[in-house]
Design a protein around this nucleic acid. Sequence first.
RNA 1: GCCAGUGUAGCUCAGUUGGCCAGAGCAGCUGAUUUGUAAUCAGCUGGUCGGGGGUUCGAAUCCCUCCACUGGCUCCA
Length: 646
Amino acid sequence: MMNITFPDGAVRQYEQGSSAMDIAKSISEGLARRILAAEVNGEIWDLSRPINNDASIKFLTWEDANGKSTFWHSSAHLMAEAVEDTFPGVKFWVGPPVEKGFYYDIDLGDNVITETDLEKLEKKMAQLSKQNNPFVRKEISKADAIEYFEEKGDEYKLDLLSNLQDGNITFYTQGNFTDLCRGPHIPSTGLIKGIKLTSIAGAYWKGDEKNKMLTRIYGVTFPNQKELDEYLVFLEEAKKRDHRKIGKELELFTFSEKVGQGLPLWLPKGAMLRGRLQDFMQKAQLEAGYLPVVTPHIASKNLYVTSGHYEKYGADSFQPIKTPVEGEEFFLKPMNCPHHCEIYKAVPRSYKDLPLRLAEFGTVYRYEQSGELHGLTRVRGFTQDDAHLFVMAEQVKDEFKKVIDLVLHVFSSLGFKDYTAQISLRDQEDRTKYIGSDENWDLAEKSIMEAVNEKGLENVVIEYGEAAFYGPKLDFMVRDAIGRKWQLGTIQVDYNLPERFDLTYIGEDNAKHRPVMIHRAPFGSLERFVAVLIEHCAGKFPMWLVPVQVKILPISDKFLSYAENVLSQLKNNDIRAEIDDRSEKIGKKIRDTELTKIPIMLIIGEKEVNDEKVSVRRQGIGDEGSKTLAEVIENIKEEVRNKTQI
RNA sequence: GCCAGUGUAGCUCAGUUGGCCAGAGCAGCUGAUUUGUAAUCAGCUGGUCGGGGGUUCGAAUCCCUCCACUGGCUCCA
């Protein structure tokens, strides 16, 4: 007998060799039907795998993240079975679960797969699911495994095998499909009910663009059709929040093939919104002791040779422009830091000047590969709410913490609650891609970790190998409508540029010292920030940001002069308002205004003129009755002051 | 940049066994209407069918090529 410990601390005895499924059945049939896998001593196991020694056990269901990922991993195998059945002779690379579903990377050989094939594959998967084939685990020697895949002519699995140790190798088989796989898997294919293959994509083998491109099929599955349907509805709804769609509908920004890809054109309403965000940041920065500076959009190549950016990115940048006579080379500004270093150097600095915080809404241009461009979130010309803090080494942590405060101020002012803070450190093995001494890196990484700890940030993840080439960073990531993560705010410690530019300050000891630089951009870029903001609020901007706050809707031309009067009073109070003076019916005017997401409608007819009031309607909510104009103005001002979230 | 897909009016979309002057709704303009909380009626304007080349008696439709966009991959100072 062996002792099995349950999550609540209870211990029960079972015969040696009992499986997690046996144990679950001994508790209840209902449990046995619901579970997908089990955590045995902290490792995720198949339910059918015999347990031979004392162990702690936790059953995993669809409600557990690990239960879901096991379910999706098994679904990837089911899809592979359907693909192999439909296209015999294809070869498989890896098929892992992802955040929402799974994929499998496949070398299709001469076969071509299209969207319509996905439906066929879904049907095939449903058919295979009905067969309710068990996932069978088999331990196999490395030699036998190699023989199996050599016979199959599968160089991909042989490549995987070459990195595995004998004695650690398992095969999983369901129906006619056998795969090299560590597992674990759900008991059988019959549990997989709601099936949707979402997209076909190319993916480089081993993620290296020098390698062959495999075909990646993405899918998502659920334990029942209802959950799949709900998920598909969610996706449809999310598409309506897409900033590219809303940006067009609300006339915020546009792109022009003639101007060039990745170069957004801000329309008046969008420019107004963007300007307001900029004012908001400018004010917060002035309060925090930042000093605004302005630098040009081009700079001599020498600047970037000094900064090291030329060496690192020169070949992959927009190529230099030249002066016609002398042939001097200038680059479009891809970042503001080197310019700010030169501003630092313009006058001798003393320790009394530090921290020196130079801020600029700097427009930069970067050559992004055409396939990377995406609405406003990834563009070739954008404006950073950039600043560089020149500080003494012992001030790094404090300044870093103040910047975290600023980022959190931005997020709370806009109601962003669902963000993660990502600490990006060096690759633990490959250190060749970084410049600067190990000593400085260690120091910088330590400062970030401490600042994050002391600020008590939640949702912190540490990513190795994600640091910039000159220093570690802390990024704030926010999701878009369909769950893609985008980096907004960023804070980076840099010991490198001060060296390269030979920045110094005179210390209390009357000797020269090297300052440390902190790069930071709470928004990241105005472009990306607006994009995420649009998706966050689905185009219903808070009162302080919305381009037009009030639409005045006279019921007929007869009330136009009263409407003009209302308009001028609103304008005198710095409220952004427009009149709809078309000779349309009020229902039409309301509908059109509702669609443009202007928050306040003031309806004016005979009653309002007689009572010297206005009838208030709130976008998305409805009639709020009549009020005096003074009352309306005060309410709006209040909402602007408080940055109220609706 | 790579893989796959898409590209018809300002917007959303019809239109392929290749064949009459390429259609609709919305938006816009003109007129009528003067309206009470999500679409008044009528008329009109508007398109090099993404660009270029080719096949054909004839191309939005078939082929080639370039461009842009979409979903991924790679990249992201």
